[in-house]
């Protein structure tokens, strides 16, 4: 099991993660990604490709897919 993590200091709410993986990442009212556990979200193997797309899309390098 892996997890998607956001570094909230690096994240500037550009929203490219949600555009790259709309089924996985939604944004709050200010444009910042909403993850299940605040700054992290468990990723199933079925969602792993979408999570990688979100990570690659971030211009701030604020997202990471890490082992739990």
């Amino acid at each position: 099991m892996r997890e998607l993590r956001v570094d909230p200091i690096q994240c500037q709410g550009r929203g490219l993660c949600a555009a790259a993986a709309p089924a996985l990442v939604s944004l709050d009212e200010w444009g910042y990604p909403l993850l299940a556990d605040g700054t992290r979200e468990p990723i199933t193997s079925a969602d792993e490709r979408a999570a990688k797309r979100a990570v690659r899309a971030c211009p701030r390098l604020a997202l990471a897919l890490s082992p739990r």
Partner: peptide, 9 residues
Amino acid sequence: QQCGPCRFG
């Protein structure tokens, strides 16, 4: 003023 959810929320 670093993290969006705090800065705006």
